[in-house]
Nucleic acid binder design. Structure first.
Lengths: 139, 139
DNA sequence: CAATACCCTACTTTTTTAGTAGAATATTAT
DNA sequence: ATAATATTCTACTAAAAAAGTAGGGTATTG
């Protein structure tokens, strides 16, 4: 029942960006340093966050990244989706890439995992970036 | 966010046993067949379940396994603990084998994972084996 | 005493996660 | 222009965890 470092780092980095003054552009290297994450690894994560349009970037000197939407509108579930984390605790209750299981209709445990899946899904759907930076300035 | 097959198989096997007439002894091979789990792998799981006293065994011909407590008293969390599944979504919120993290007091995300951890923990703590076999005979 | 079925440890394979490497592209400032 | 900066993208490698195998041992029963 672990979430991956990709998700953890992504959330931390986005909170970091959300805590910056609005539209301030921060180079990746700075965030990597602050968050103690290897720059090259964070780069991969940022690529995905950008492709999911959660952040925007600017190249060249003085370039960097900045958050592209109001933190209060960015659900944690979106971040997880962006970095490819699957929230489902068991494959047979995942909506995406569902693999067929022949036991599906007689499996006594599936409804239980389904229930758990719903609880977890709701948790990630009902919290946003701004819930994670409430006690700070957060544009 | 996946739970391991060890936990899934363990829960399924225990539900299977719980659905048997009281104190009926079932050889592992039968459960393995019914649950489509490799016997040798299930054996490992049963070893742990027995060590955790969730099941009892009887050797020799006519031997096998049977559940040692009322299914309504067996929390899912106990099963997970028995097979070594960690429920914590992030290492820094696990009670056991906590690894120190230097960011602990200034990490904006930890309280969030902690909250998730609590929800998940409660989920597994408040359901028992009998919740998973309600619609059937379940001693 | 042979057959059955659990007991236990160690090992191997597979899959996933985590991390590295490097070359390309765009932008800014001089 | 061009040097410096910083993102873009793909591919590869290493480490860790999960899943599955193997095999010899022990107890019990008919």
């Amino acid at each position: 029942m672990k979430i991956t470092t990709k998700t953890r780092y992504a959330v931390r980095a986005l909170v970091d960006l959300a805590n910056q003054p609005e539209s301030k552009i921060i180079p990746l290297i700075e965030i990597a340093k602050r968050q103690s994450v290897k720059p090259k690894y964070l780069e991969q994560i940022f690529l995905k966050l950008r492709q999911a349009k959660l952040i925007k970037s600017k190249k060249g000197p003085g370039g960097g990244y900045f958050i592209s939407r109001a933190p209060s509108s960015v659900k944690i579930s979106e971040i997880m989706k962006a970095v490819g984390e699957s929230k489902a605790p068991v494959f047979c209750v995942a909506t995406k890439k569902y693999k067929h299981c022949s036991r599906i209709n007689r499996c006594p445990t599936r409804p239980y995992w389904k229930k758990l899946n719903k609880i977890i899904g709701t948790f990630f759907d009902t919290h946003t970036l701004s819930d994670l930076c409430k006690k700070r300035k957060c544009h």
